[in-house]
Structures are given as C-alpha cells and as structure tokens.
Design a protein around this nucleic acid. Structure first.
Length: 326
DNA sequence: AACCAATCCAACCGCCAGATT
DNA sequence: GAATCTGGCGGTTGGATTGGT
C-alpha cells in the first residue's frame, strides 16, 4: 500500500489568493521552509491544498521572481530556446533567471506566438509557413545537427533542473529564514553544476563564467559558502557546456559551421522578428557580411541571410565567441 | 457612459515519473 | 512488485483589465 491520501479536497478553498493567505504562506516558509507541501497548508493555517500552495509560492510569492515586462534579451532567449526545446517551459525558464515557467508560457502564448504567426512563421517549427524545399542546400544535415543538439541540451537541462531542485530543497530546508532574496537562482545551480563538471579546472571555469554574454560576480553574500551569480542574458549555463571535454558538442558545432561555410543555411528565422527587422538583422553582423558576399544579393539571398542570422543567434547562446548584438 | 471585444495572467486541471509504503 | 502518493510540468480556463466604438 502507498501513503495516505495527499489531501482531503473537501472544504479546501480555491481561486485567487488573498493578502492574508499570502502572508500566512510567506511567514510559514520564512520560518520553517518548505519540506512537505502536503502538510504545509495545515501547519500554516491555510485552507488550501498543498498543490495550490506550491503553485502560489513558485509562481508568485518566491522572493527571487522578477515581474513586469520582458526585455528584448529575454524575448530573444525565449524564442531561441523555444526553437531548440519546444514547449519545455521549465527548461526554458532555467535560462531566464527570476522568470517562472508559467510567466514565460503566458508571454509566449499571448505575445511571441502571435507575433510569429503575424510574420508568417510557424510558431511550432519556427519555419516560414510557405517555405520551399531547400534540402539541396544541406538543410537536412543541419536540421539533424540542430535536432541532435536539442537532444543534448534537453538531457543537460534535465540534469540542471535536478541539481537546482536539490539545491533549493537543501537551501530552504537548512536555512529557511536566512535570506529574503535571491536565495536559489542559478547561483546554487551553477555552483553545483560547475563543481560536478569542472572539478580541478577552476581557472577554466572562471574563464567560462566571465564569458562576454554573461555577468558573473562573486561577492559578499549572506551565506558565506555561496557565490552571487547574476545572469545577464541567458547563456551562462549554455556556455558551461562548451568545455574542452565536451568533444561531441564541439565537434557538432564545428560540423555545423563547416556545413554552413559550404553554403548551407537552415530553416527558421524567428530571430528576425524581434523588435522589428533592424534588431534581428543586427545579430552577428560580422558573419553576415560574409554570407552577403557569397550569396550575391537579391531577394533570395536576403532570405538565406535572415535564416543565417537566426541560426547565428542560436549558436551565440551556445558559443560565447560568436558575437550577439542587441 | 455603456457596451463589447480583445488581451492578460493567476490559477486550476490532468497527466506523468519517481518516490514511498 | 503493486498500489498509491508527491511534486513537477504543460495545457487550459475564466475573471479582471484594457482598448475601441
């Protein structure tokens, strides 16, 4: 037999949370942390089910949540990661510190998806809806590579998420009231991840953390053992995967680049729709020049160029050496 | 001012994988 | 090993808000 039922649903309140309920939940977690959501509501004096409490906490009350409008960089990150990962909102959220998966999902459904559709881009495949077959240009191979990368990234994100969860639990279970802000963002996630993947390679790790697309600082924290890592942009975690030991990954990227140099471009150009064409076109301007020269201009070349911009922007997330301009 | 439609977003629902008994 | 619980995830809903007429 299993455990006793999670909660007696009879008589439990549903719907919007009141300020009083919020305060009760906050006060309880501040004082005791969250060990078991099942028993929490009763202990906290709430007539809600544990699931509702967890949702309220993770999506609204958590102190490390950033609210308000998404900036351009965040929009771009969402679109790029969605192209790679699909509707895996929690995975996408791991690259957007302080944003919840629910918020990202909502923003995608209400803003970004519509914008893509408006531009004639399929929000599921990130391809133009009237795209003509371009396999002769090596697209199939690139698509396979991207797909392969997405699989690799998915597996890595799962590991990351697991580590993050462990860190969160440890943090709140051991020091429930030791902080009021930024308790367990990518700080714990990254330190755990890097320590597991980069042991004995501190210099290199530091180098990676100081990549051009992320801002990482180790400064005074309330918890002496923790380093404060503030992510600007989304690439820090992705940067970590391009380590020397990630032979497959590097070879895949190189393979892709080689194919690209041979004239191949891949599908999708949602990067272009960000804040109008001008911003999209600014991605990887340096590389685009080369493409322009090769392609010889004209409407068709613009299409290829645009696609390349899109891919460049994705690979900029992966490869910090590739410039990404905003 | 009143009505309606569109949009936003917090919260719920149902499913799943892993944990627990 | 089966039954059941738990936490997490993605999809969906519906009330609130905003904008247009």
């Amino acid at each position: 037999m299993g455990r006793s039922p999670c909660c007696d649903k009879l008589g439990l309140k549903k719907g919007p949370w009141t300020q009083e309920e919020d305060q009760k939940l906050l006060a309880y977690i501040e004082e005791h942390g969250y060990g078991s959501w099942r028993s929490l509501p009763e202990k906290a004096g709430l007539h809600r089910c544990g699931k509702s409490c967890r949702l309220r906490w993770t999506n609204y009350l958590r102190p490390d949540i950033k609210r308000g409008k998404f900036n351009l960089q965040e929009e771009q990150t969402i679109i790029q990661l969605h192209a790679l990962l699909g509707n895996r909102w929690s995975a996408i959220a791991t690259h957007l510190p302080k944003r919840t998966d629910n918020e990202i999902k909502n923003y995608w459904n209400t803003h970004l998806k519509k914008r893509l559709v408006k531009m004639g881009i399929d929000p599921v495949t990130h391809k133009p809806k009237n795209e003509t077959p371009l396999s002769s240009l090596g697209l199939t191979k690139n698509a396979a590579i991207l797909s392969h990368m997405a699989q690799w990234e998915s597996a890595r994100l799962e590991a990351e998420a697991r580590l993050a969860r462990e860190s969160k639990i440890l943090h709140y279970q051991t020091k429930p009231s030791s902080h009021h802000h930024h308790g367990f963002t990518h700080k714990t996630l990254l330190t755990t991840w890097t320590s597991k993947t980069n042991q004995g390679n501190a210099d290199h790790q530091q180098q990676q953390l100081e990549s051009p697309t992320s801002t990482v600082s180790f400064s005074e924290m309330k918890e002496p053992s923790s380093a404060k890592i503030e992510l600007v942009g989304s690439s820090t975690c992705l940067n970590l995967i391009k380590e020397p030991e990630n032979d497959w990954f590097n070879s895949t990227v190189h393979e892709f680049e080689a194919t690209e140099m041979a004239g191949g471009v891949d599908e999708g150009f949602t990067g272009l729709m960000l804040a109008g064409d001008s911003l999209g076109r600014s991605f990887s301007a340096e590389k685009n020049e080369t493409v322009k020269e090769r392609s010889g201009g004209g409407d068709c070349s613009n299409y290829y160029e645009d696609n390349k911009n899109y891919l460049d922007s994705i690979f900029s997330l992966v490869d910090p050496s590739t410039p990404m301009m905003f």
